[in-house]
């Protein structure tokens, strides 16, 4: 156990040091994730906002929470894995007694840690602007919300890791992730709370893992009404489905790995 903890500590600290080398780039990434705040501005001024079952303050809290969730659920493993597989950098990882999955996971967590100051600054700026900042849920809800946000990250990481396995069959698998971006944006709750969707579209969204990635943790963080156990059970079910699928595809993919460029 202590060996595992030490490995996690070393991996995270080294990856954090690596990410700090790219802090300026990460600040720009954080800024590029402003979509929920843009959507907040759009919804706040739109007549359609009246049709939502949310008050202006609830709407502000939701999109601010969605911004935070989005910042801590950004996943780019497919892009880095594709490059590593094509350029042969995966080979040294495969020769060490540690599944490469953990390295990529550690680099994502380290990148999230690097984002924290930028995200806090943006949240504080929006907070100080004041719109709807009153009535925030208690810290216990925040803590639970952050925990669920990390579960949402794990789910998104697993989903993209499954798609990443296509890199063993195709040299341009990252295009698949771009294909998934549209349903992710619309069905996750990033452009509008799912409550604003027509019932049919809401049922369609509920059949995908996307609402668990933004809508559920954002509503929890913003103090909205949620079915906590139902939401957690949905996340657990998706994780239970994706994890064995990932392992199965990993084993099959390795048989096709040609260690190009190595």
């Amino acid at each position: 156990m202590s060996r595992t903890l030490r490995l996690a500590r070393v991996l995270l600290s080294v990856q954090y040091a690596y990410m700090l080398e790219y802090r300026a780039e990460i600040a720009l990434w954080a800024l590029s994730g402003l979509l929920p705040l843009i959507m907040l501005a759009l919804w706040s001024g739109a007549a359609a906002a009246a049709d939502l079952s949310l008050s202006p303050a609830e709407l502000t809290r939701y999109f601010l929470a969605a911004f935070v969730v989005r910042q801590f659920t950004v996943v780019w493993v497919i892009h880095i894995f594709e490059e590593d597989a094509l350029q042969g950098r995966l080979s040294p990882y495969l020769l060490q007694p540690l599944h490469p999955f953990w390295r990529y996971l550690a680099s994502h967590i380290a990148e999230q840690a690097t984002r924290v100051p930028f995200v806090l600054a943006i949240v504080l700026a929006v907070w100080l602007l004041g719109a709807g900042a009153s009535g925030w849920p208690p810290p216990s809800t925040w803590l639970l919300g952050l925990l669920v946000t990390h579960l949402a990250f794990l789910l998104r990481f697993l989903l993209q890791s499954v798609i990443t396995m296509a890199c063993f069959w195709s040299e341009r698998a990252a295009a698949l992730d771009r294909l998934l971006l549209i349903p992710y944006l619309f069905l996750s709750g990033l452009v509008a709370p799912l409550e604003a969707f027509p019932p049919g579209l809401r049922r369609l969204a509920a059949a995908t893992p996307f609402p668990s990635m933004v809508d559920f943790p954002a509503r929890l963080l913003s103090g909205g009404e949620v079915d906590l156990l139902g939401g957690l059970a949905t996340m657990a079910a998706w994780i239970a489905l994706l994890l064995p699928l990932y392992l199965l595809l990993w084993r099959a993919g390795l048989r096709r790995y040609a260690a190009m460029g190595a």
Binding site: R9, V14, A17
Partner: peptide
């Protein structure tokens, strides 16, 4: 040295 720290931890 950072890569060496990781390798040391990976190999226990």
């Amino acid at each position: 040295l950072d890569s060496l720290r990781v390798n040391a931890a990976v190999y226990g």
